[in-house]
Design a protein around this nucleic acid. Structure first.
Length: 390
RNA sequence: GGAGGGGUGGCCGAGCGGUCAAUGGCAGCAGACUGUAAAUCUGCCGACGAAAGUCUACGUAAGUUCAAAUCUUACCCCCUCCA
């Protein structure tokens, strides 16, 4: 079923593992970070720059491309790889997360109880999710079949089952019903995938179950039992870091370990270490690129200005006269060419180069981090790597 | 010289008798951001104070009024038009 794909664990240190994930567009060394290029572009950085910073794989989103410009359009233009000029491995998300975020707001807002915008999610039923397009306000319906068909047209190597990302503020009853519906949707995703499998794509199943141990266990077993290529952990991961690690642990217990395991939406440095230690192979998160656009440069502990943050905020006035690079020991083009003072100025002056240059650094930072994590696992000195980065 | 319009917090700009330390926007100072409706959002932003509060403020000065950024008078600037 997945003959052009493969996953092998090369090194194992306790539950942490170094692996090779094979796709038709190349091999990915895991643990790996997947950069979010939601609308067929990783914001602020070109595919060439992604290559230069050693990014292995990027991700696009079904929901966004479905609403505009449409998957058929991209298919006609040769598929997503060709369309966006990225020739490496690619994953597409199913659009399931948008059902959540359109209905409940961003993750942090949802947990904090903020509702910044009116919900555009109209209805979820057995069929799928009805919502108003972010693009033109049209009523749209996304179903498991439609999601897989769209992802087939887009042509990413790794594709994801359609699910509902259960919000944090859901009671156990809703979480359970939602999980079971997601399971039915994932089964339908699998059926639709198998119906026209041309071996250029591989399908992920998603573990749901919210913050409830028994539900996570049931979901992990359900997914492991079905012929998915890989597993992703989705749904709410709780409201605190501690709870998040607990939930990831619950979700990984009972998973098939021969498959790659992806953790959806997580990208903090400490979080990555914790979750790699729980057996996670790949991560994706908007944080490195989003925080860059807002003036935040990810830095190792010795370069931080605030112990509670994993980045420095280059908009702060203290950087106006700081002639040093973000990190003197970083090999990215931003650190080799620009001072914090210049980046601070660019941010203040509203120059497009600022978010772009900081994104380049953050992408390189994440890739270097993952590289050293792999070395740490292989050399059995992950503890040392951890102390260097967090 | 004549006619008209205007001078408001770092800047632009509302307000035109009390509810005004004064709407907005910009700039400034911070904060947030975790399967991207995000180059976004939030807070602070006269002085002193942790706060309650106190003081100083809408060109300058004098008045009217219980009360003036708002009304009157004079003066000083600026802009437009006419000579």
């Amino acid at each position: 079923m997945y003959k052009n794909f493969g996953f092998s664990v090369v090194d194992l240190f306790e539950k942490s593992r170094v692996g090779i994930l094979k796709t038709p567009h190349g091999k990915i060394k895991t643990p790996a970070f997947i950069f979010c290029g939601t609308k067929a572009s990783v914001k602020g950085i070109s595919p060439q720059q992604l290559q230069e910073t050693k990014a292995q794989i990027i991700l696009s989103n079904t929901y966004h491309l479905f609403s505009y410009p449409g998957a058929e359009h991209i298919k006609k233009l040769g598929g997503l790889h060709k369309f966006m000029g990225w020739n490496g491995p690619m994953l597409s998300d199913s659009g399931g997360f948008q059902i959540f975020s359109l209905g409940h707001g961003a993750v942090a807002d949802e947990i904090k109880g903020k509702r910044s915008r009116a919900s555009t999610l109209v209805k979820i039923d057995e069929q799928g999710a009805f919502f108003r397009s972010y693009w033109d306000g049209n009523m749209q319906l996304l179903t498991p079949e439609k999601s897989i068909e769209t992802q087939r047209d887009l042509g990413a190597d790794l594709i994801v089952s359609f699910d509902e990302c259960t919000p944090y503020h859901s009671d156990k009853k809703y979480t359970e019903q939602s999980m079971e519906r997601s399971h039915r949707w994932e089964k339908r995703s699998l059926d639709e995938f198998a119906r026209k499998n041309d071996f250029t794509q591989a399908l992920y199943g998603i573990v749901q179950g919210g913050v409830y141990q028994d539900l996570r266990k049931r979901s992990a077993e359900f997914i492991s039992d079905k012929p998915f290529f890989a597993t992703a952990i989705g749904g709410t991961l709780g409201s605190t870091k501690t709870q998040m690690y607990e939930v990831v642990e619950m979700a990984t217990n009972g998973l098939s370990l021969s498959r790659p395991i992806h953790l959806l939406g997580i990208g903090g440095i400490v979080d990555i270490f914790k979750c790699v230690e729980l057996g996670i192979d790949t991560f994706d998160c908007v944080h490195p690129t989003r925080v860059a656009r807002h003036g935040g440069a990810l830095v190792k502990p010795q370069h931080r200005d605030n112990k509670t943050r994993e980045h420095i905020n280059l908009k702060r006035s203290e950087y106006a006269t700081d002639d040093n690079p973000i990190e003197p020991d970083c090999d990215c083009s931003t650190c080799k060419n620009f001072s914090k003072a210049y980046l601070h100025y660019l941010l203040k002056a509203n120059e497009l180069l600022a978010p772009s240059a900081i994104t380049v650094h953050n992408v390189r930072f994440m890739n270097k981090l993952m590289e050293e994590i792999r070395e740490g696992i292989s050399n059995k000195n992950l503890e040392y790597v951890k102390n260097k980065w967090r």
